[in-house]
Computed example of a mutant assay.
Amino acid sequence: MDLDEAAWELYSLPPGDFTSARNKLADRARADGDAAASKAIRELKKPTLAAWLANQLVRAEEDRVDELVQLGDDLRDAHASRDGDRMRELTSQRISLVRDLGRAARELAKKSGHKVTDTVGDRLAETLDAASVDADAAGLLRTGRLTSALRHVGFGVVDESGEPAEVTPISTARERRATGKKTTKKQAPARKRTQADKRAEERRRKEAREKLERAEAELAEAEEARAQAEAELDANEHHVEDMRTAVERLTDELEKARAELERAEHRTGSLERALTRASRAATTARRRRDALAEE
């Protein structure tokens, strides 16, 4: 399994589809006998909505993302040479490009049925800003596998939790062993193995197998608990979105009801005045009739 390609595909999916797709892919890798790939895939984290938007921009707006990164390089050069006019020009271009990319992200989100709140929009803008001023942030953005929005602070780049930003590595232990440097050591002279040595080795193997079995059982239990927690989190996030939509709908209805109430109250005043005039006219007409009847 090509892990880079698998990760690229996973992080192109809507956030709501990420967890189930990742777990299915990890299960398939395990079924194929590639436990290391399965573990590496399961370690991939679900992106926040802001991170997902940034990842989609890398796919759909690659040229403009590259332009943003290049602007960052040019800005650093202008700063190093203390070219104030050039810095102002490039800064204006950067602000405009970040704004355009933000609009493009909102369109991408709309097509996928997601609404971009002001908070999410701000986090996306911070991510793009970070990529334009910090080479490390630019490198993280261009992977297309962000799990959290980025923010540039005085000492580097952090994620939404304030921790140093990074992208989950997907290389497996098998690949690390294959690409790692091999070291050679001078071998000590071999000694003849005794029966006691063999028994001791067998005990060690048995203990190792038992530990491995316990570890596998604990891992399976932990993975099940994590999958359950992620499923609950996904369900809650959908519930939050539904409630947010409901609040917006009810807010609109409330505003309409208030406007209708204001119109009705205004009409009530008009009708009350009309009733007063009609009552007075009726009283006058009654008196006139009574006076004629007495003649």
Rank of each mutant, 00 (worst) to 15 (best):
A178V: 05
A178M: 09
T179F: 07
T179D: 09
G180Q: 07
K181E: 09
K182V: 05
K182I: 08
Q187D: 14
A188Q: 09
P189M: 14
R191E: 03
K192M: 02
R193W: 03
R193K: 11
T194P: 01
T194D: 00
Q195V: 14
Q195I: 13
Q195F: 08
A196D: 03
D197K: 08
D197L: 00
D197H: 00
K198H: 01
K198F: 03
A200V: 12
A200S: 09
E201D: 03
E201R: 08
E202T: 06
E202K: 14
R203S: 05
R204T: 03
R204E: 05
R205Q: 13
K206V: 01
E207I: 00
A208C: 01
A208I: 04
R209Q: 07
R209P: 00
K211T: 13
K211Q: 10
K211G: 07
L212S: 13
E213R: 15
E213T: 10
E213C: 06
R214A: 11
R214W: 12
A215T: 11
A215P: 01
E216N: 11
E216R: 12
E218Y: 13
E218D: 12
E218V: 10
L219M: 11
E221V: 04
E221Y: 11
A222L: 13
A222H: 04
E224A: 13
R226G: 02
R226Y: 03
A227H: 08
A229N: 00
A229K: 02
A229P: 01
E230K: 01
E230M: 05
E230Y: 05
A231H: 08
E232D: 02
L233E: 02
D234I: 01
A235V: 03
H238K: 15
H239V: 09
H239I: 08
H239D: 13
H239W: 05
V240Q: 10
V240Y: 03
D242G: 11
D242T: 14
